[in-house]
Design a protein around this nucleic acid. Structure first.
Lengths: 222, 222, 222, 222
DNA sequence: CATGAATGAGGTTTCATTCAT
DNA sequence: GATGAATGAAACCTCATTCAT
């Protein structure tokens, strides 16, 4: 994609909404939807309130379009990654999880959407539900299906609860990541992102692998 | 049923604050702190706004005192349970997790405080931090210490990441439970509480046990 | 008047209103009418809000009756003093002014009524007017009449403006005294009461006495 | 008169704050700070509450800025007048007092700030203190210094209490003027402004001149 | 396009007053 | 008599939204 943004800044009208969405996401993530004033977003984007209303009908619309705008970047790629991935389920799970939780958001923060929408549960119930469906739920369904696949191929224990494993892992990771920005005030929250994700995945896999016991000790008795 | 309610109000000086706290917790959980008007709480308690201010200085005070009031019931018992528990780490982990996530809140809902405080992250940052420290963090620290213990006794793999295991399990479960009330609108969220907790614990244990399950040797001894 | 208050405190029912009035005057003077809550008065009197409403219909009524109660003590005596006084106008003016401004209020503060009512100009216009009529205006009329008397007897200059002299002296003194409590924060306000009053009176008299020049210096030339 | 007022409001960005301050001063003087609602000010300025908050952060801010705005007009000129004045102390005192109390406020009322701030003694103690320092106290210090000067040159009696003379005259005049608007209800209060000021000054001078008027000797020289 | 002045609904808090006990 | 719980009318302040310029 050619970068047309030249050094001497050339105003392209359709740049403004983009900037507003960027600003909105950042500010909403920082202060929460309810505690963010339109003025805050405008200021962050370097314009005034009125300009925001040029492009977005309401505050809610602003958030909704921002979510929409970032949703793909945040979730869309996962399917792709998986679609082209081959190999054992464990490998594909590692791939998926790294893709899902590994990279930073375009805004610098991770899980920005989660951060915003968790705070907006009571303010924008519909958006919150959409996010749940398109984000966490979709995520754990995908993960669960990979686990089920592993179970089918015998890679994983047949008696493992794939659904719960997927749910807890996904929502646990989301929550941990969403809490990371609070670590400046609550240092006990701090944990290295890579360690968090990698360890979580390895633990998940360990919980799924058969006791690969082959009951070795038993054999000697048989 | 005899109506003893007098013209304006029925005087129950001792129970009123209690009732207000109960009402507050319920309403705050339902609508979120910010979206709850003092009138809502008052109405839920069957009084008027003024009565709330008779007992609580501010809206924030109301929530803070409600949190305080329910905190012990929500978290205090766990330590106790563990203090008196003996046996292998796995057993004590099962015990702890059931105690932590099993019983219903006195308000009917589970994890009510989590629900409220998550929504108040930007409104009452200090309360939110307190909750994190006294709730989730305390929870996963306890769980992590049990895991470490299991590692020391050889019950668990020495190379398991106890910290991450504890964090993801605890925050994953909290999140899942907090999302349960939304299942009326997003049915995909619905999951049986007992299954959730039990499976999560078993998965956790599986992820911790050594791959080579030596305890099968025990069987021959029986 | 026999003091029946015994050491072991004997509650006489008709003591309560008195105590409330005392408390009211003090608290109103301290915080102003509008900024004084009924609770404050009650607390100062060692009772609860309800008790105040036993004796006084409204907050306004409380103040009105307090004013009424203290008005005589504050102003009533002046007439008497003057009625029995004889001698030159200047002497009677000194007498009157000492009586009017000299003694401390029963509440410890001077000019308590002025203090209260000045702050209540917009809250209780009628009471304020009453106070003006019964206090300052009455005061300067009395003073003016003494001055006129002095003018008639030749003690004072016939061309002195008795009305203005009386007005400025009386309201100036009231104002100065009413501001004295603020001297803790604005030390420049502080002035000794006796000096204030005595000097003011002497200045007043000097302004009234004829230039008793007899043009002495002129005589040598004539 | 052509009505140029558009549907909702007429845009006069530059004058609006000014108009609000003007309205504020008037309304505050009329009803007192505490008894004035922001709506009252807004209404007086022909706008709504929100517009006031567009320019002023709080009700207190509104008053403070109004005071600031009018303070110079009310007090600032006096120093100037005196700085350029020469001649005997008595002449300069006359000059100062006319300047200080003579002209009408820009708002039509005289001593508007005094009127407002006296009522706000308990509501805005800090503003009240500022006013005392910048207004009355400054006034009587200036007057006192002129008197002292007159004493030094022998124009005035050396034994006159300059401080008290200045205090009583200044605060007496302020008080009288502040009470003038009440004359509609309490006619006894009414007095002509010029007479009040001129007589007060003459009385002050009479009280300061030596009893033995030596300047009669001057006459023979003419 | 953009500005920012103005609106007004909505929510928190205060406190005089009432009244069951 | 006294208490203090409860009421409810204000009043301050916020901020999404509108709209003239």
């Amino acid at each position: 994609m050619a970068v047309t943004k030249s050094l001497r800044w050339e105003r392209r009208p359709d740049t403004r909404p983009q900037e507003l969405l960027d600003a909105a996401i950042v500010v909403f993530a920082e202060r929460g939807y309810r505690n963010t004033r339109i003025d805050d977003v405008a200021e962050a984007a370097g314009v005034t309130k009125g300009a925001v209303y040029h492009y977005f009908a309401t505050k809610e619309d602003l958030l909704l379009r921002a979510i929409e705008h970032y949703h793909d970047r945040a979730f869309g790629q996962i399917d792709q990654v998986l679609r082209h991935a081959r190999g054992p389920a464990s490998a594909r799970i590692r791939l998926m999880m790294r893709k899902a939780f590994g990279g930073a958001d375009p805004t610098g923060r991770k899980m920005t959407l989660a951060l915003i929408l968790q705070s907006a549960r009571h303010d924008l119930p519909e958006a919150h539900r959409q996010w749940l469906r398109g984000g966490p739920i979709k995520g754990w369904r995908l993960l669960a299906s990979l686990i089920e696949e592993g179970k089918r191929t015998g890679e994983f224990r047949a008696d493992a609860d794939a659904e719960v494993a997927a749910r807890v892992t996904i929502s646990g990771l989301i929550t941990q990541i969403v809490w990371q920005p609070l670590a400046v005030d609550v240092p006990e929250l701090l944990i290295d992102d890579d360690r968090l994700i990698d360890s979580a995945v390895e633990l998940l896999l360990h919980s799924l692998w058969p006791a690969l016991v082959v009951n070795t000790t038993d054999t000697k008795e048989n």
